[in-house]
């Protein structure tokens, strides 16, 4: 019985707003367009498109120390990179870092957001406190945590001495140095992730929870069967943002470990920087930059694909 009368139609898909604004084509528009779009195109052209192509170009050549291209080697630089255990380990280090940072950022952000979305007296204070790390810049975060990790005066060292445990030097051990960078990054990311997820949780219609209450769903059941699916677009968004951001990490590494010890935290961007501006190996650095671009572009595309669909359900 599908008597879909005219008054009971399935709502149209949202009309594309650019079409809604499709007033008559005006000949003058192109001059306006030049004025409105010109400055941005110029800047993006000069500082994004040109350098990208240039980087791609350099990555196909060998370069001298001045950065001038000398011999065309095709994909030679890439082949060298992929066959270099040093680079591969660096890639793995980066992947491990990205995965750990993303996992802990999203998991902790979700925990905080879920707690802080409760309607309790005084909850606003916690919401403010949890978002505080959003105001912390790279260098400040690094300094706060460097002090905590400091083997002679740091907080962890102090705690160890209180409990008579051996003092551990966080930043000289490859494994713990990596975790030091991960902890600091997660801490820095947390405020932003928390706020975004809190907003998403708060925008879930309350009647869904009320309906579930009446139907007898426990609060755990509601979290996994209502909250999580309802905020899954946002979860996806913060995950990809965090993945992209961690692939591009540089400041914290430069300040906390400088890629060490023994390259344990020598991640992609740090390599790109060092190979170019320390070793003067511009072609190698460019090839690494292109690999980074491919990775970032992949995740950004994923994000776009998703934005296009807008919803998961």
């Amino acid at each position: 019985m599908l008597k879909t009368s005219t008054t009971d139609a399935i709502p149209d898909k949202k009309v594309n707003a650019t079409h809604r604004h499709s007033f008559r084509l005006n000949a003058k528009d192109k001059y306006y367009a030049a004025v409105f779009l010109g400055p941005s195109l110029l800047v993006l052209g000069l500082f994004v498109f040109y350098p990208m192509l240039k980087t791609l170009y350099i990555s196909l050549f060998l370069t001298n120390t001045l950065g001038n291209t000398t011999v065309y080697v095709g994909l030679g630089n890439y082949v060298n990179l992929i066959s270099s255990p040093d680079f591969i380990s660096s890639l793995f280090v980066t992947l491990f870092y990205v995965f750990a940072v993303t996992f802990f950022t999203v998991a902790l952000g979700l925990l905080l957001a879920n707690l802080a979305s409760q309607k309790l007296p005084g909850i606003a204070i916690f919401r403010t406190l949890y978002s505080v790390t959003m105001g912390v810049s790279v260098a400040v975060a690094a300094i706060f945590w460097l002090f905590i990790f400091n083997p002679s005066t740091g907080f962890f060292a102090l705690m160890s001495s209180w409990f008579n445990l051996p003092v551990m030097n966080w930043l000289t051990n490859p494994t713990s140095a990596m975790w030091a960078v991960i902890i600091t990054t997660v801490w820095m990311n947390l405020g932003f992730t928390f706020l975004i997820l809190l907003g998403a949780i708060q925008s879930v219609p309350n009647t869904l929870y009320e309906a579930a209450d009446v139907e007898g769903a426990s609060s755990n059941f509601q979290f996994f069967h209502i909250t999580i699916p309802m905020i899954s677009p946002t979860l996806f968004f913060v995950s990809t943002i965090t993945i992209i951001g961690s692939f591009k990490s540089f400041g914290l590494i430069d300040m906390i470990t400088k890629g060490g010890p023994t390259n344990a935290t020598n991640m992609l961007v740090y390599r790109i920087y060092k190979d170019a501006f320390y070793s003067g190996n511009y072609s190698k650095s460019s090839a690494e930059a292109i690999i980074l671009t491919v990775i970032i572009a992949f995740f950004t595309l994923l994000q776009f694909k998703f934005l296009e669909k807008k919803v998961n359900y």
């Binding site: 992209i244 591009k248 790109i272």
Partner: peptide, 9 residues
């Protein structure tokens, strides 16, 4: 999609 970090040279 293009990271600025890849274009520093």
């Amino acid at each position: 999609m293009l990271p600025f970090e890849a274009e520093i040279i």
